[in-house]
Design a protein around this nucleic acid. Structure first.
Lengths: 351, 351
DNA sequence: TCTGTCTTTGCAACCGTGTGCAAAGGTTCC
DNA sequence: GGAACCTTTGCACACGGTTGCAAAGACAGA
């Protein structure tokens, strides 16, 4: 894309305003030493010429580019899309700008993405999916680039790790199922093996095991709608059909619900209780009314940028892990909510 | 975010490899004049030191940053999220990187976003929503920055305009409704007033008008699920209840369908035919099975980047507008498809 | 008027890269 | 051996900012 680029530079502004190039720079630097008169003249000239400070050059001398890299895959998915949206917004609020790198193509590309972040001297990288090699992480850290891991559940030192209390959510789900009178439990998972997915599975199994119940676990495909349908086919044709299923994500839950209702003719929640995770928009649509757990997407973004804006010595002093709560959102795929819960709790959940 | 940034520079690599700094630069520039031996030594040293070419500095001297700005709002929406995904992917395939700017906050912020693009000397900006002032567009163009407008239907000279044949889709919808035996037509739109939304509405009204049919038009709220529900309440309580509704987007259609079925107890497509637009993933979910039009998202991205990679003189010679077809996706919310269409067409549509 | 202090300004060096130009070195051919 | 040519290399400047430092100017006080 070779272009006859003709950007106006500080020198031209300086000439027009009849000042030195440093004066122009200072006029655009908050807190710099410039007289009010000079600043006005400079801004006037800049405006007339259509001058925009070159952030590439500024980043070069400041050693701070203002760029934050967002790396992740499946960005078209409702949950991820919301995360990207929240992150770009938070970045802008913090005076940064988000550079997003899509890692759908290959599996090694989390590393490639981080290399790209290094090329652009990104101030930080936020990783939404995949897990980078220790070596590349270390490289970024050594270069003064900060890293945030979202739901990655890694034990590397250095990056900030933001995780959800998946185990707690699993226990709440179990409680809800038990209260609904369910005993034949199942867990519908994808084969993605993502840390958070596995944490939910482990948490659910552990909680059930603690009171002597077993859980039928099925895993299939990626974390998408169609996998949910297939999981329903597998779980609902089992000899002992489950009466309560915890789906690892809402997308899976939606597929599961559709198959259960339309292919198996089951009534939810009468014949079968179902829960999901993420609280994607579709979970609230009246064809689903899915009881699920809300990912506190804006809290995640806020936590991430709060840490990123910290001074370096401050950042290393703070604990490098944050655990956020996933709020249970009661809707209509689990029995017994309206009858059993106290009214105040009911309104708090926004029934 | 002040950091003790310590990036390794070409000078350090040069010292370690025992060559000049220029040699390092050339080793990383494809097609530059370096001996194989020198290149190897440089790459070795670079690898050992963890060197990454500084794209900020490179952009400074090349006058080409490799950055493409993606500006848009409602990035969490299924359609937009898919577009962002396709665009980031296409950018990477073209050797560029996408910087996304979220314009949800204010309406003037399309201009602010483009200013940001100027600050970072982006090679191009792709605008997914909103419409920039003529003045700011001109500013970008003058600075050699290319602009792509997606579904914006503007007549400004300079930017590439990629649009869908909304009118054609509207005519197809009408044909389908007529073939299904419907005569009481309606159009459910949001109040967003987006060019493509209005084009669909106008196209549908014109096509119906041409054969002497009138269309009940209702507009409400933003282009979201809940608006669809409200639109259903309004249209379905009319004295003359419509038997066919063209919804401006799939999100609206999903809300409409849910309200029609669950609140009004209508059977679709027996009592009512419904179509949407976008072919978001949920349209294919079995609770909806929505007949709709697929936005050729990857084609849009491909067209955009094909044009962006053109040499400047080439780009200005080409027509600055592209019209893409929206393929009709037949599912189950319109009657008569299976009976009336020829088998080959049926299989082509993937029934 | 002279001195001391404070604000404002310009000079010049630096950030990390790409590249035109000239020089050096090597090879081929006569 | 020398001329002609090609490949490879380094120097030095440009890209567009920021900023330490010193100088200049303004101003108050003695």
């Amino acid at each position: 894309m070779p272009s006859p680029r003709k950007f106006v530079s500080a020198r031209e502004v300086a000439e027009r305003a009849g000042v030195s190039r440093s004066a122009v720079s200072r006029a655009f630097t908050p807190g710099a030493s410039v007289s009010e008169d000079t600043r006005r003249r400079v801004l006037e000239a800049a405006n007339a010429l259509g001058y925009h400070v070159n952030h590439l050059a500024r980043g070069l001398s400041l050693k701070e580019s203002g760029i934050v890299c967002l790396v992740g895959s499946e960005l078209g998915t409702p949950y991820r899309a919301n995360l990207v949206k929240a992150m770009t917004q938070a970045a802008q609020d913090a005076g940064k700008v988000a550079m997003v790198i899509n890692t759908d193509r290959s599996d090694a590309s989390v590393g490639a993405a981080l290399r790209q972040a290094l090329h652009y001297r990104a101030d930080a990288s936020i990783i939404l999916s995949g897990l980078p090699d220790k070596s590349i992480t270390r490289l970024c850290l050594e270069n003064g680039q900060r890293i945030v891991l979202i739901n990655r559940d890694d034990d590397q030192e250095g990056p900030l790790r933001i995780n959800l209390k998946d185990g707690e959510a699993a226990r709440h789900t179990l409680t809800a199922f038990l209260r609904a009178g369910c005993r034949r439990l199942a867990f519908a998972n994808s084969e993605a093996g993502t840390p958070s997915l596995m944490a939910r599975e482990r948490g659910f199994l552990a909680a059930a095991g603690a009171i002597g119940l077993t859980v039928a676990v099925e895993r299939f495909g990626p974390s998408v709608y169609d996998s949910g349908r297939e999981l329903a086919r597998r779980l609902l044709t089992a000899r002992e059909r489950p009466d309560a299923v915890f789906c690892a994500t809402d997308l899976i839950a939606c597929g599961f619900l559709d198959a259960a209702r339309h292919e198996f003719g089951l009534a939810v929640p009468e014949d079968l209780c179902v829960t999901g995770f993420d609280d994607i928009e579709q979970a609230g649509w009246s064809s689903y009314g899915l009881t699920t757990f809300a990912q506190p997407v804006s809290d995640i973004a806020r936590e991430a940028f709060a840490w990123l804006m910290l001074a370096p010595e401050e950042a290393t002093r703070r604990p490098a892990a944050v655990e956020l709560e996933a709020r249970m959102v009661w809707r209509r795929t689990v029995r017994g909510y309206a009858q059993d819960l106290s009214p105040d709790l009911r309104s708090a959940a926004g029934a």
